[in-house]
Design a protein around this nucleic acid. Sequence first.
DNA 1: ACCCCTATGTCAAAATCCTGACATGGAAGA
DNA 2: TCTTCCATGTCAGGATTTTGACATAGGGGT
Lengths: 153, 153
Amino acid sequence: MEDRTPVAPPHPADDVTEHVGYRLKRAAAALRGAMDKALREHGLTVPQYACLELLDERPGLSNAELARSTFVTRQSMNVVLRGLQEADLISRPATTDHGRALPAHLTERGSERLHAARSAVYAIERTMVDALPQRRLAALLADLDRMAEALGG
Amino acid sequence: MEDRTPVAPPHPADDVTEHVGYRLKRAAAALRGAMDKALREHGLTVPQYACLELLDERPGLSNAELARSTFVTRQSMNVVLRGLQEADLISRPATTDHGRALPAHLTERGSERLHAARSAVYAIERTMVDALPQRRLAALLADLDRMAEALGG
DNA sequence: ACCCCTATGTCAAAATCCTGACATGGAAGA
DNA sequence: TCTTCCATGTCAGGATTTTGACATAGGGGT
């Protein structure tokens, strides 16, 4: 239980739990867990929800584009898309006259499901943001971007 | 390629990629990718490295404690520990005279492997920190903690 | 026209992780 | 003491994700 509060840290920098990577992983894990729990009640997984949200904003995205946007491989996104197609939440043409990318679109059911789940996810986001001191959000977003870009993300 | 720079975002808050969760996931994914690549050259996975690092600082941690500290389930950590034991990087007693928790310890090989991999991981951490404006690190760590705690992390 | 390079979709196999479940050891309270 | 509860380790099964590989479509340069 006291895993994250060692009894006597010699120096903050000497404790792994004080490192940026550890904190980042911790926050991401907390978010993932909260979203998993909230989305389960809507019959969606986190990658599935991410897909629907992206397709709602930018209809016609291809499998590879969705994969890059959600930071997973094309193969992983492919199975996610199949699941969504199986559930009739998205639609994808079997062929295309130009190129190889197959544009995906939300179905009516997909749009409804997204709007139902969105409020739950937004509540989580609100919980996170409200936990921050006022006016610190922009700086946090900028810092996260700087780190990701520095690592080639 | 232009996945993260939509042509015309109506309002920042209306774009998923502007949300805190998205940025958090992006930074975490970038970190994970960089660590994966760096650790592969040392024959370690990220969870394995996390284990070794924790055991170096706090020898005798049990499977369940390590699992909580790395934000995975006991079952997942169990297979990680078996892999480390198989590679003779850690040691665990088969039985214990008191309780059920089996304290894990680094072996000589494990300590050597950790020290070899540590420099690569620390370089990544340095890259991240250097990408931040000076003196912003403490605030970032605090914000990450606040968010994690708000979500029950 | 031809070749090369990149991007995309997909298949197959393996690795990783999680959910559900069970048995055991220890602590706390009736 | 006995009972109840919690934590731990472990097994089995399935879901998710990744690595590796292959074939195809399009653009660019020769």
